[in-house]
């Protein structure tokens, strides 16, 4: 019900203001979150926690939730997830820890899960935990997240470790370049968490309006192909906020996205039997009973 309201709002209001259409209501897709196994009862906002492996993501998670967490598996999959919650201001936030990945291009099961959650669950905020000492590598993931959603807060973690290695990161410069809030933290010693919470709540409630940086593709043919597809997608799916990203995924032959376009329910999560196969064992062969 809530989601439908959102949709009409967005169509009526001009596109650039689509997000501002309803400043204080949650942006998440409740139906899809339920399919992803997230119980949203008693929670106002859902926050996803993404990041590369070994960036102290779980430390941030523990620092934010204390010990109020539980672990389980993603529906039908063997990847563990931790879930927890916290209160800030007058709202209750549900925090979902996504698997640590280098990329979101769905090469591995972990990447697919993280990608699906951000894309279909449409969390109110996605916090990307970044290792300050390995900024370049980590920004790769950040840029990919920014392609999907602009409700992002960057948690620039491990700044103490970076300082020890004589690396200093200008967080304001970074925030300006990326177009989203950047909060330096040392999660291990609870430093910067207050600021992180404030940034999360501002993005969740729509107070912060982000204009995220989008990657420039240098390949000339690619640019043409993308813009041609984008106009077609925007025509067919005016409510989709990330047409450019959808175009790229279509060009890459991403089956999940192709299916969503085919059925006309871009933005809807449809779990198929194939995805339940934990190890990615060849599905065509399994289904038809062939000997490999």
């Amino acid at each position: 019900m809530e989601k439908d309201l959102n949709k009409t709002n967005q169509v009526e209001i001009s596109e650039s203001q689509a997000q501002a259409g309803c400043a204080s209501c949650p942006a998440h897709n409740a139906a899809n979150l339920q399919k992803l196994g997230v119980d949203m009862e008693n929670w106002d906002f859902v926050v996803a926690l993404a990041g590369n492996p070994n960036t102290g993501k779980s430390t941030v998670f523990n620092a934010l939730t204390g010990l109020h967490q539980h672990t389980g598996n993603w529906p039908g999959k063997t990847v563990t997830r931790a879930e927890g919650g916290f209160d800030y201001g007058e709202n209750r936030y549900k925090l979902v820890d996504l698997p640590g990945t280098y990329s979101l291009l769905a090469t591995s099961l972990d990447e697919e899960i993280a990608r699906d959650f951000i894309l279909f669950g449409q969390p109110d905020v996605t916090v990307v935990v970044v290792d300050a000492a390995r900024l370049e590598r980590n920004l790769n993931l950040v840029l990919q997240v920014l392609e999907i959603t602009n409700r992002v807060v960057i948690c620039l973690n491990l700044v103490d470790e970076a300082e020890r290695h004589n690396i200093s990161v200008d967080d304001r410069r970074l925030a300006r370049d990326l177009g989203v809030p950047v909060v330096p933290t040392v999660a291990r010693y609870d430093e910067g968490l207050e600021e992180l919470l404030a940034a999360i709540s501002e993005v969740a409630s729509g107070k912060t309006q982000a204009t995220p940086y989008h990657v420039k593709y240098t390949h000339p043919k690619l640019d043409q192909a993308v813009s041609k597809l984008v106009s077609q997608i925007q025509e067919a799916f005016p409510q989709v906020p990330n047409a450019r990203w959808v175009a790229l995924r279509l060009l890459d032959g991403d089956e999940r996205i192709i299916k969503a376009v085919e059925k006309g329910d871009l933005g809807e999560l449809t779990y198929t039997v194939e995805n339940l196969d934990g190890l990615g064992v060849d599905t065509v062969a399994l289904k038809s009973g062939f000997r490999l």
Partner: peptide
Amino acid sequence: KIMESLYTDASRIADRAVTHPGDTP
């Protein structure tokens, strides 16, 4: 091609934000 573009941009943005204030230990 996508990964190349991503890393090119990532490295440009990182270069602008990162400094090495002292001597490398």
